[in-house]
């Protein structure tokens, strides 16, 4: 594929996207989060793993902006460092989900027939199973590690992407340029990846953004329930400890509220971006 038209369409896309206020707001929030994650060591004043038995459960003060937890760790540092894990898990899990979903959607839509039937039944199966329940169970089986969490979340949330990609593939397949590509003897592989994929790409982007928000949420939920690696500093872990240590019931809002706000704002940003993208590609939803 030519680089120039792609760039052109990208800048064209950017021009349209810029007009979308909500989408831009979401994008800016995400960028801020990424900056926080990168700059974490420079904008915190304590090592997040440093314990201090004489400074437990401190309310917010000028040394510890968000107070301290039950072993005297700085909650502000923990929250800031938590951004890293959440972003990494969110992106990678969404990547896994999108990869699986896209492949299955493309193959099933392009080849059709029995293969399509089997793949779509499988997709339905995964769509019906309550993902969180399965994640908890599988997480308990595979053992707690970030890699496992990423794989589990990725492998259990590809079905919506697969459905969307399949239906778009079905419509793209009927277009004349596919016919002509077939006529000049292009292989299936070439057709799928050179001709169909670029046309399906916008929908994949929209779905992937939504998948990121689902992944961040699912990861936090897993850790909150105690199925996950408690060594990794993440928002879910802070919430987990806030709940199990009784800090929440003791009314220590500074322990419980900030990580939740971080999660909500970030997932919200991804939902905004995802929805704006969807709106761009599905004119019916467009407001104008």
């Amino acid at each position: 594929m030519n680089v120039k038209p792609m760039l052109q369409s990208l800048s064209e896309f950017w021009r349209v996207y810029r007009e979308n206020k909500l989408g831009m707001a979401g994008l800016i929030i995400i960028v801020v989060y990424v900056i926080i994650a990168i700059l974490a060591p420079y904008i915190t004043f304590h090592n997040p793993s440093e314990t201090n038995p004489s400074k437990v459960f401190l309310p917010p003060n000028k040394d510890y902006w968000f107070g301290t937890n039950e072993v005297g760790q700085d909650l502000y540092a923990l929250n800031i460092y938590g951004t890293r894990i959440s972003l990494i898990v969110g992106f990678l899990a969404a990547l896994v989900a999108t990869f699986i979903g896209t492949t299955i959607g493309l193959v099933s839509g392009y080849y059709g027939g029995l293969l399509d039937e089997i793949l779509m039944r499988t997709t339905d199966f995964f769509l019906v199973i309550p993902p969180l329940v399965l994640m908890i169970v599988v997480g308990a089986i595979l053992g707690p590690s970030m890699t496992n969490a990423i794989l589990i979340i990725g492998m259990l949330s590809w079905s919506p992407t697969a459905r969307v990609v399949r239906s778009m593939t079905l419509s793209v397949k009927e277009r004349p340029f596919i016919e002509s590509a077939k006529a000049i003897g292009a292989s299936d592989f070439t057709i799928i990846f050179k001709h169909i994929l670029p046309n399906v790409m916008p929908a994949i982007w929209a779905n992937m953004t939504l998948a990121v928000s689902t992944a961040i949420f699912s990861y936090a939920a897993m850790i909150f329930l105690g199925v996950g690696d408690v060594n990794d500093v993440s928002w879910g872990m802070i919430l987990h400890y806030a709940f199990t240590s009784g800090a929440l019931s003791a009314g220590m809002w500074w322990y419980f509220v900030p990580p939740g706000l971080f999660i909500v704002l970030l997932t919200f940003a991804f939902v905004l971006v995802g929805y704006s993208l969807e709106e761009l590609f599905n004119p019916k939803l467009r407001r104008f």
Binding site: F57, T244, S245, G246, A247, A250, G251, M252
Partner: peptide, 29 residues
Amino acid sequence: SDTSSAANALKAGDVDAVGPYIPRAMIEG
């Protein structure tokens, strides 16, 4: 399901005593 919930029940008056222990953060309260 956990010691916090049980301690909350004591606080709310749903129970009169709790075991096996109250979580550390709630002792002072």
